[in-house]
Design a protein around this nucleic acid. Sequence first.
DNA 1: AGCTTTTTTAATAGCGCTAACATCAATTTG
DNA 2: CAAATTGATGTTAGCGCTATTAAAAAAGCT
Lengths: 349, 349
Amino acid sequence: MSRTKKRSGGVTMDHVAREAGVSLMTVSRVMNNVPGVKASTREAVMRAVKELGYSPNAAARSLARNGAGRIGLLYSNPSAGYLSQFLVGALDGAQTSGALLVIEKCDISPDSESAAIGRLIAGGVAGVILPAPHAESDRAIAALREAGVVAIAVGTGHARSDAHAVRMDDFAAAAEMTRHLVELGHRRIGFIKGAVNQTASVERLLGFETEIRRADPPAEPLVEPGDFTYRSGFEAAERLLTLEHPPTAIFASNDDMAAGALAAAHRRGLDVPGDLSVTGFDDTPLATAVWPELTTIRQPVARMAEAALRLVLQESRDPSRRDLRALIDQLLPHQLIVRASTGRVSDNS
Amino acid sequence: MSRTKKRSGGVTMDHVAREAGVSLMTVSRVMNNVPGVKASTREAVMRAVKELGYSPNAAARSLARNGAGRIGLLYSNPSAGYLSQFLVGALDGAQTSGALLVIEKCDISPDSESAAIGRLIAGGVAGVILPAPHAESDRAIAALREAGVVAIAVGTGHARSDAHAVRMDDFAAAAEMTRHLVELGHRRIGFIKGAVNQTASVERLLGFETEIRRADPPAEPLVEPGDFTYRSGFEAAERLLTLEHPPTAIFASNDDMAAGALAAAHRRGLDVPGDLSVTGFDDTPLATAVWPELTTIRQPVARMAEAALRLVLQESRDPSRRDLRALIDQLLPHQLIVRASTGRVSDNS
DNA sequence: AGCTTTTTTAATAGCGCTAACATCAATTTG
DNA sequence: CAAATTGATGTTAGCGCTATTAAAAAAGCT
């Protein structure tokens, strides 16, 4: 008696149905774009929806669909830019497609990963999106497969034989970046590798080496290890810059390491790009938060997340194809972003 | 007939109840820590839960609770570090407390904000968390109030009279940072302001000025405008460093602007911290991704998000207090993080 | 013992939505 | 012209969980 309305602002399908003068089911059909509704009816429903400001209740939908449309996302790497963009993309996609994201955190240890995967499976998700580091985990993917859950690897270096993949062409992008440097006249080029357990790192290195071999006049590659952290980039650059014949350009496998290289150069009093060109990879927010702003490769992270979401949804909808395993490998376009950190090689090197 | 189990991995309360030999409702009570369950029963249920790897279905729970436990989060500012940390904190909290996060994006325009708020309300959330820029929006908070939805402002400069607040003490933190610089011997200190429409910016400036006035021997403040972007920090620093008597330290109101100041200093060939100390604010990942790493204030973003979540949940549970409006203002502790970007003032300045 | 008061447990009715089937008119066909 | 075929909509039965009410068991009182 105290509260007149059960819930403020709770517009349900029932209201819409009444307003449009149709049955509940028709509204559901319209909301899900199911064919077999007369155009005029559909329009009337749409009008009612707009009128009442109705928006479907994701929880109820997920429940009714019995888990289809509920999809998991495993993350571990709160590495600023990447995760943030990825989450935003995924959330966006979830909103649009009416999916329910179940986001599960874990750290890098295999145990923690397994536990998280277990929780996801027990939670009854239809599919799981595995970004960056987890996309390489055979164990995780095997567990998912066994449970009959669709797995999507995002950001791996190449397609997988046991899961769908959404990724970019790391090889081509690295080659493109290398060509950019070669065209600027650089012939002694340092390369800072990424974490070795990620296939994307390998592809980037391969792209670099392949393109270097093509250079005419020939170019000399100077490869240093790294692990995608700022510190490792700093240290690798220090090693490169203290060589007897230091490189005139450094190609770091990601923006964090490029920022480290930048710092190392500045510390030695080198001007970028006057004395040394530096390039990154990924185009995280960091790329434009350092000086000079980094020439880098734009990885369409948000779009990848969205694509992954769509893919899970689509694949989990019809279980028929599940075993035929027409594995999908979706490649998204990247882009070379030339900013202020690269320039023509100077004469006095 | 083809699929033996309705859904792979779908462990429901029913299973747990059967396993533990109790009724469904008892399991629910145990899961929600409702008192009135015999200890031995509770224990048996817990064992069954663990045994079966049961985890409650957030969607179903949200539905059954009729929206209580469904809480909204409005974001707009994909500014890398902050959002990422905030989301992680909120998602974490949601997981623990069994809430269902409804995340809604909008851009900075008032129209877009109103629309997003409208969707949230129509979605029947019990409360809405408003981080950084939206926390200042009177319009948004008014709309929420009117709909009877609990609003929590996060990261404002001071408590609000119309919404609960979760925040840090920007004034005290800025004063603390200023004291740090003064103690290092700096007497000409530049300050780069944050966006003027955020009260936190004002508090930080006030904290700075108050502490400056306390300095003995007296110190001279040099205040420049900024808007929390890297570029504005760069430009403000350029202005400061081209003064006839440039400052020996620059206190930027956030890390992005500090990174800009760092770049400006490097460009002029200044050594940090040898010739110039630079400090940031927030301790975003950027703080450790520049060289030298920034002395800054650690803002417990993730914890703030979690606290906000808890607060919404708690407040929305009993609507009785809703009108008494015992507004809560929860202050979370910050921390001065001293890194390599600040040092004792040099003699030859 | 017989009764009321406290615990503790069980049963029932939805929350908002969708899948699957049922219905009913408007066609088409033998 | 009755029967079979469409196309558009309506009905019914849950999805997994929680609130609420009813019931049973345990404990306290005269």
